[in-house]
Computed example of a mutant assay.
Amino acid sequence: MAVNVPHATAAKAFRLRLASLGISPLEVIETASLGRGTTASVQSPPTVYEVLETAVAMSGDTTLAIKIGNGLDLAGYGTYGFALMSCSDMGAALELFLRYGHAFFPQPCSWHRSVSKDGIILRLQQNAGTIYQQMLVTELAFSQMNYANKLLVAKPAEGVRVSFSYPKPAHFGVYQKTWPFPMKFDQEYTEIFMPDRWLRQRVRTGDPTTNVLFSQQCEELVSGMTEADETTVLVRRLLIHSAGNFLNFSEIAEQLYVTERTLRRRLATEGTDFRTISDDIRNTLAQNYLRKTSLSIVEIADLLNFSEATNFHRAFQRWNSTTPADYRKRGSP
């Protein structure tokens, strides 16, 4: 069975944060499972709602969800975190979050965007859990988002404001210390408003070139969550991670601990071959470099391991029936 990499990465970051606060992740999960009853615990692991409620009860700390979110470093999310850190500005980071963040959040919890007159509204929707459990997940999500914002821009969240669908909690004082922006309670929705001027702020660690790679790695991870052809997914992932110095066929086989003949047979069974996969990866990266960076054609050719820019030019024209220069001018396929 294939491992759900995004979920596994998020779960690991969550467990490490619990441990850093002196709470045993294993004990919390076991206690949450026992509290569900024998039948439920066998059918599926405890949800994030149950885990959070159990952790709060065991610790006796009603602000625990906030503390967890305040220490979930972006780097702990691997490729997804590095993709966010390499975005050019907060608007780009938001787009990436909305596209890939669902893979790192519990499924009953989702963010929905709407455009207002002078900014963006993100609404948090939850279709599971009790009201109390939903409050804990909200505290975790908002704390994590605020912590990430501070890492990305290191500036006050000017113009940002938040509404909560639940009553003001007894530990409201912690909210004020943690989230330095206007808050309202007992509202129809739980949502956050981000003004356009905030979204235009530059990310301190922004790097368009590396962002292309990390974003494509995110795409590969998320696509692999539902991909049936497992060998193809693994080959694509290895190629993406070796971008700039692409692995060759024999090196891929070595990484997968199979012979070249076995790898060739498995790919054929899935209806593809190494050349097709490699060309698809390089074409995807080339398109993204042309759209999202100011790199020259020569620099892009070098990043894609073409010995000469003319070779890249011919390959790109074969893949897309247009030249790299014309593709860049149009800005889209």
Rank of each mutant, 00 (worst) to 15 (best):
residue 72 L to D: 00
residue 81 G to A: 08
residue 77 Y to K: 05
residue 78 G to R: 00
residue 84 L to C: 09
residue 54 T to D: 08
residue 75 A to N: 12
residue 67 K to V: 10
residue 54 T to Y: 09
residue 64 L to G: 05
residue 69 G to Q: 05
residue 63 T to Q: 09
residue 49 Y to C: 09
residue 74 L to H: 11
residue 52 L to P: 13
residue 81 G to V: 04
residue 86 S to I: 08
residue 66 I to T: 13
residue 53 E to Q: 14
residue 79 T to R: 03
residue 86 S to Q: 03
residue 79 T to S: 05
residue 82 F to S: 12
residue 86 S to T: 14
residue 53 E to L: 12
residue 73 D to I: 13
residue 89 D to V: 06
residue 52 L to Q: 14
residue 74 L to E: 11
residue 79 T to L: 02
residue 66 I to N: 06
residue 76 G to K: 04
residue 75 A to H: 10
residue 84 L to D: 06
residue 50 E to H: 09
residue 71 G to W: 01
residue 58 M to G: 12
residue 85 M to A: 15
residue 80 Y to Q: 04
residue 59 S to Q: 00
residue 52 L to Y: 15
residue 84 L to Q: 13
residue 64 L to Y: 06
residue 66 I to C: 05
residue 56 V to F: 05
residue 51 V to G: 02
residue 78 G to Q: 00
residue 59 S to A: 15
residue 52 L to V: 14
residue 58 M to P: 07
residue 59 S to M: 00
residue 68 I to C: 05
residue 54 T to H: 12
residue 60 G to E: 02
residue 71 G to Y: 02
residue 57 A to L: 07
residue 80 Y to L: 04
residue 59 S to V: 05
residue 76 G to V: 06
residue 71 G to M: 04
residue 88 S to V: 08
residue 75 A to L: 04
residue 83 A to V: 05
residue 60 G to T: 11
residue 70 N to F: 12
residue 84 L to H: 11
residue 71 G to T: 14
residue 82 F to R: 11
residue 69 G to Y: 04
residue 59 S to E: 00
residue 75 A to R: 09
residue 56 V to K: 15
residue 87 C to I: 06
residue 66 I to G: 03
residue 55 A to I: 08
residue 87 C to M: 03
residue 89 D to H: 13
residue 86 S to G: 09
residue 56 V to W: 08
residue 88 S to Q: 07
residue 66 I to R: 10
residue 86 S to E: 01
residue 62 T to Y: 04
residue 59 S to C: 04
residue 60 G to Q: 03
residue 86 S to Y: 06
residue 69 G to K: 00
residue 75 A to G: 11
residue 83 A to C: 04
residue 64 L to C: 09
residue 85 M to E: 10
residue 60 G to W: 03
residue 82 F to V: 02
residue 63 T to C: 06
residue 67 K to N: 10
residue 65 A to Y: 01
residue 57 A to Q: 14
residue 86 S to F: 02
